[in-house]
Amino acid sequence: MTQPATPKHRGKRESLFVAIVIVLWAAAFGVYLVNSPAPSLWGLSSTYAYSLMWWTVTILVLIAYAVYDLMGG
């Protein structure tokens, strides 16, 4: 059975998550480095392909953190 996290532990976990969020959303701006209509993954433009990959990674990170958090950390 999982034990509820202490406020201190929860605070550290949240701080780590906030740091990850900042890095992830900064990476969203990386789209300007590959901003081209040229075909890339699956024939999509490189801009769209980058953005789709960013979104997939972000959703997976959010799922992973939420599962970890809701299970009690």
């Binding site: 969203a28 801009t47 953005s51 789709l52 979104w55 972000t58 959703i59 959010l62």
Partner: peptide, 8 residues
């Protein structure tokens, strides 16, 4: 590009 970032 923008909406995928703002919705999440």
């Amino acid at each position: 590009v923008a909406s995928s970032a703002w919705t999440t």
